[in-house]
Design a protein around this nucleic acid. Structure first.
Lengths: 345, 345
DNA sequence: GTGAAAGCGCTAACAG
DNA sequence: CTGTTAGCGCTTTCAC
């Protein structure tokens, strides 16, 4: 292994060293610059002999193509922008992984950024991403500022809104109905015979819709109200613990099923229950959301709503790729979800 | 809310609609294209009156700057590439978050990609990222292919290797000694009076060095060997559970302290212990690594090695920014770590 | 304070 | 199969 010790030039001013360009490579190989371009983008169009010479020149010079120039000239950046509320939430990052992986097969690269839950900040990031001239853009959710919509529309590229559905997407959307997942969870709980319910939710818009779905159906069917605790938009194990503690200590909850807007929150409830010596599901039953990897391995194993995050990323990628090929495709993809019954409820 | 329904043009061929350029904006504002450029990059150089006209024209046209062209001309992309082994592991994503946040203040954007643990795949991604001409690049770890090192060196930009330290960084490195964290954990366990030890580790290179550090010191001091279970590079709760199960069932471990290469693994051990009715820390004590958010909220609360992931991202960002300003800075930053004593050991 | 000219490094026609 | 000619939309001198 080469022991490299050197200090790259300061990067304030443009790098001093003259860039190695296709011109350089071409000169060394005894051909013109265009031929180098062809050798790289469409090798079939170049004779084996000159191809060899060019490859040699590339190796010698350590040439690295300038995708900036390429994108400018071809008007195709091979870049797909993706904006998610949080980078640290596996729920999004696992979806991004499948998106990246499928797009990579088509030689597209993902430009990822974190928007938080503020549409204004999202708007700003949309602008900076659009300035990099991506070939498509993927957003989380269906709520964006009016200005963001204008920019998106004006960009003339495929726009995919993920994680939710609407009748009027900007362009395409793939997701599912959040309130329906909540209603399904309530139906499941009712079928199981639980006769009291509560809810713990993260404060973001989609999580709240899941909670409302649960509470609404529960109230419709039983006439009971559903006490709830709402936390910050990004849910933590600690919030789940606090949530159960409050439900028990201040709402006087003794037993029943608790609907959590995420598996992490549910895991927190499980943890707090263990710490308090409450039996799950006998005393407290818990339903999570997301079916993260850990859900099957908590103790007791978590009953949860499964949404296929890889599928989300995959469908988004497929839709984009289809658009690139000029196919026209249905604007909204309604992904299904299901209740995974395990031991916690 | 505007109800937009429209189908963007197919993107196979270059988008049909003529792009709105600085030229367009300038014409509308009655000035030349350069003036628009100045208005955007250095408003002071433009008279208030024309500035106003330009801003108006920008609003009317919905002009979005083309950062590709800007980067090509200025030889500065305002882009920083970052490569991490995993997007879904909070350990990396939380570091990326602090890196992004600080770089954003300097108007730099992060281009993030996932490399997995294979240096060859990393090399490939380094190439594609370098082709986008980032102004700096951040890598995970200090092991890279020889070819990757060449490209990195040739790029003439700041290169930061994160999460580890070495005497011969490619350019800069900021991290800590992994084996030292393991040794510190062993010392802690010895001080606490534990007289038997085992280890569970993820299979990646740095995790294994943490485990070795622990085992080596333990053996040096006690003469005992340390049974261990090693899993895939990305650790899961399930692996932690399996790890404890194997340690108990096949290695006949009855009691002692278990060193885990991550908090997630440790959480799994806690879970399996609960499922088996083992008391923590009386029967089985557990030491994690990372001090993730959840570590303080497991039951019992996790004793762990804290490394400040935000600090990692922050220091990387500061180093890069310093380089941009032409300052020259120490090539290696050794970040400290500490043992957080909670209830699990 | 503003403009004209000359590229940045590449791809896209068009020739031959 | 290969080369020539034009740009892509900006920033960077250098003038005025």
């Amino acid at each position: 292994m080469p022991v490299a010790r050197n200090a790259p030039p300061p990067s304030e001013a443009p790098p001093g060293q003259r860039a190695v360009t296709m011109e350089t490579v071409g000169r060394l190989a005894g051909v013109s610059q265009v031929t180098v371009s062809r050798a790289l983008n469409d090798p079939k169009k170049v004779s084996p002999e000159t191809l060899r010479k060019i490859q040699e020149a590339i190796a010698v010079t350590g040439y690295v193509p300038n995708a900036l120039a390429g994108a400018l000239a071809s008007r195709r950046s091979k870049l797909v922008a993706a904006l998610v509320p949080s980078l640290t939430n596996v729920v999004y990052s696992s979806m991004i992984k499948s998106l990246s992986d499928t797009m990579r097969d088509g030689h597209y690269q993902i430009m990822l950024s974190e928007t938080g839950t503020d549409p204004a900040q999202e708007e700003e990031l949309i602008a900076t991403h659009l300035s990099r001239r991506p070939d498509a853009i993927v957003l989380t959710g269906i709520h964006h500022t009016a200005n963001a919509r204008r920019m998106l529309l004006g960009a003339g590229i495929p726009v995919v809104e993920l994680w939710d559905i609407t009748d009027s997407p900007i362009d395409l959307c793939v997701g599912f109905s959040h309130s329906e997942t909540g209603r399904a969870a309530a139906r499941y709980a009712l079928d199981r015979g639980y006769d009291a319910a509560a809810a713990i939710s993260a404060g973001d818009e989609r999580a709240l819709r899941r909670m409302s779905g649960f509470a609404d159906l529960w109230t419709e069917r039983t006439g009971q109200s559903v006490p709830s605790e709402v936390f910050a938009p990004s849910s933590t194990l600690a919030d789940g613990r606090t949530g159960l503690a409050r439900l028990v200590d201040t709402h006087g909850l003794r037993r029943g099923v608790i609907h959590c807007s995420s598996d992490v929150l549910a895991h927190g409830v499980l943890t707090e229950a263990a710490a308090r010596g409450l039996r799950v599901p006998e005393d407290i039953a818990v339903i999570g959301f997301g079916d993260q990897d850990m859900a099957a391995h908590t103790y007791p194993a978590l009953t949860t709503v499964r949404v296929d995050r890889s599928e989300l990323g995959l469908q988004a990628a497929k839709a984009i790729l289809a658009r690139f090929e000029g196919k026209d495709i249905p604007p909204v993809t309604d992904l299904s979800f299901s209740i995974i019954a395990r031991d916690s409820a």
